[in-house]
Amino acid sequence: MVWNIVDKIVRVIVGGFFRLLKKDYTASVHEGLMQFVKFGIVGVSNTVISYVLYSVTLIALKAGGLLPKFDYLVATVIAFVLSVLWSFYWNNKFVFTMEEGQTRNIWKALVKTYISYSFTGLFLNSILMVLWVQVLGVSEFIAPIINLLVSVPVNFFINKFWAFKAR
């Protein structure tokens, strides 16, 4: 039911925008856009899950006095590994679904998903942070938000056309 409401809202807003531009808002354009919206929803849930996992792990490590100099790094790794697994599950089930007759090697897709998230989450975001902060003088608090405008679409396309590509 909620998904039907989101679908209708996107149809009205984006369809209206396409009409203003005198362009056709085709079913395939809508389907691709809705897939991106679903990817975004999974991404938001992934961000929340990652932060919760990080916080809980960090609190547990601090309470146990384990790895006091590296507890935040261990918490980061645990949060990354588990939150990407969360994203993989929901992207596979909800976003990049397969048509009848298509197949996907689940383990290969999982490895590709970790590579994709590592590339966009670590490598690309780090390079962009240097660009925004050191080269363009953007605030360190605003730069990660700008990164989302680049890294989310890049991650979507990597996942769509590589990690979750059906055979």
Rank of each mutant, 00 (worst) to 15 (best):
G121P: 13
M34E: 03
Y89M: 10
F80M: 06
Y89C: 07
F17H: 12
T97W: 03
T57Q: 00
A143T: 03
Y89I: 14
L66N: 01
V133R: 01
V154G: 02
G15E: 09
F39L: 07
W107N: 08
I13F: 06
V111K: 01
G32A: 02
D24V: 05
K93V: 12
V6L: 15
L110H: 04
W90R: 06
K69S: 11
K22S: 14
F141M: 15
A143W: 01
K8D: 13
V154C: 06
F94G: 05
K22W: 06
V135K: 06
K93G: 09
Q134Y: 09
Q102P: 05
R11E: 15
F164N: 02
I13V: 14
E31S: 14
L148R: 09
F141I: 15
E140P: 14
G32C: 02
M1T: 07
L73S: 10
V6Y: 03
W90T: 08
F157Y: 14
F70T: 12
I115P: 06
F161C: 10
V95M: 05
I115V: 14
A27F: 11
H30S: 13
G64L: 02
N155Y: 11
I59Y: 02
G40T: 11
R19T: 13
F39W: 06
K112W: 09
A27M: 06
E100V: 03
D24H: 12
F141P: 13
F17D: 13
F123H: 07
I5A: 15
L148T: 15
K112I: 00
Y25A: 00
K22C: 12
F161Q: 08
R104A: 02
N91K: 01
F141C: 12
W132H: 08
Y89L: 12
Y25K: 07
V138S: 00
A60V: 00
L82D: 07
L66H: 06
F94C: 02
K62T: 10
L21W: 12
K62G: 00
V2S: 10
V95L: 07
N147Y: 00
K62H: 04
T113A: 05
Y117T: 05
A163N: 02
M129S: 15
V2N: 10
I59A: 09
R104M: 03
F141A: 15
F36N: 00
Q35T: 14
F88T: 10
L122D: 08
G101I: 04
V42P: 06
S139Y: 04
N91F: 05
L33P: 12
